[in-house]
Amino acid sequence: MNPVREHLVTLLTEKFEAPPGSIHDDAALGDLDLDSLARVELVFSLQDHWGVPLDDDRDSTGDVTVGRLVDRIETLLAQSAQEPDRSE
């Protein structure tokens, strides 16, 4: 399992108490017993952990799937790795 997916599954099961058997790539967040505020909390947690600019609104709708979130984070991480280091 890739680290992004592993972290997301851990978050969903441990912090948001989603049923482990229901978590697969096509599962929508709304179907995992995450209400609207919990979905925003999930996005906040992912932003904090990975340091990527997920969208508070579009990435927390009920129809966002586990697979799409993993793809979004991996895409943003890849973009971040390609950007020149501005800290210097």
Partner: peptide, 8 residues
């Protein structure tokens, strides 16, 4: 109010 956005 739009709860999800307001929460964020």
């Amino acid at each position: 109010m739009r709860g999800r956005q307001v929460y964020a």
